[in-house]
Amino acid sequence: MSNVMASNVLAPAAPLPQAGAARTAEPQAPSRSVRWLHDLPVRSALVGAASIALFVLAWHVATTWKLDLYVRFMNVPTPADVLASAEAAWGSPTFGSHLLMSCRRIAYGFALAALVAIPLGLLMGRFRLLREMVFPVSEVLRPIPAIAWVPMSIMLWPTNEQSIVFITFLGSFFPILLNTLHGMATVDPVLVRAARCLGAREAAVFREVYLPATLPQIFTGLTVGMGVAWVSLIAAEMISGQFGIGYFTWEAYSLVQYPDIALGMIAIGVLGLASSWTIRLLGRLVMPWSPAR
């Protein structure tokens, strides 16, 4: 298999001498004028834009022709409908406040989860007794999806707002905790010993070795946690919310404002993307030593 491929690749590269000279000279001129096309960022941006355009086109075709291919597009709004409702929503203060509300819930829930899970994971990684005490509880609670906590959460917390933030917190808590723990378990022991030999005491080893060595894993946890936070938030808003983009999307269905469903979905997608970009950017700022991924 690989031999066949290799010979296919090699064959045109070993032509007759005269033909070879002509061939190398010829494509050089045009390739220079479109070289920027082959620059990786430009190229991938173009391909990305094209793929999105194709998706919108397919959407447009399916909805304007009202295709019925078992999956039914009769009631699905066209891109133009959604654009129109987006313009309307942009003008009204309610849409903005829904977005703001969701972002605030994510910010509170996620920040709280990070503030609890990262130190807890670091300490659990360092102190065996704590790990042995917390781990069983976390293993029992972890498989329960955050959405399953909705009724319990409503009973636990005095206000609706608090219970939704709690759901978001739960969603991101376990990915962050487990990744931090895993990061702590994989810290290279020779680095710890090197630090001790250079006079570092317990607190300094923790701050100067364990923490930075675990940061890449912590950021993996934050990225995953942010994704799960959005999933949990939207579900919680749909079930028990009065505000928020999840509630907006569900309400649009109840009120038969179909373009708003798509608008809500797109808004959720954009917000999710923006928050994971933020985390990646933060990761690059905090870890200048690690190659960009």
Partner: peptide, 29 residues
């Protein structure tokens, strides 16, 4: 303790510190 320096077979520089920060580590401690 820092009165006995040790060099390991495995490379043991801190990847998150620059060369200079690595050298500074013991002094910082």
């Amino acid at each position: 303790g820092a009165d006995r320096g040790m060099i390991f077979q495995q490379y043991s520089l801190f990847p998150w510190k620059t060369v200079r920060q690595n050298v500074e580590f013991g002094l910082k401690m």
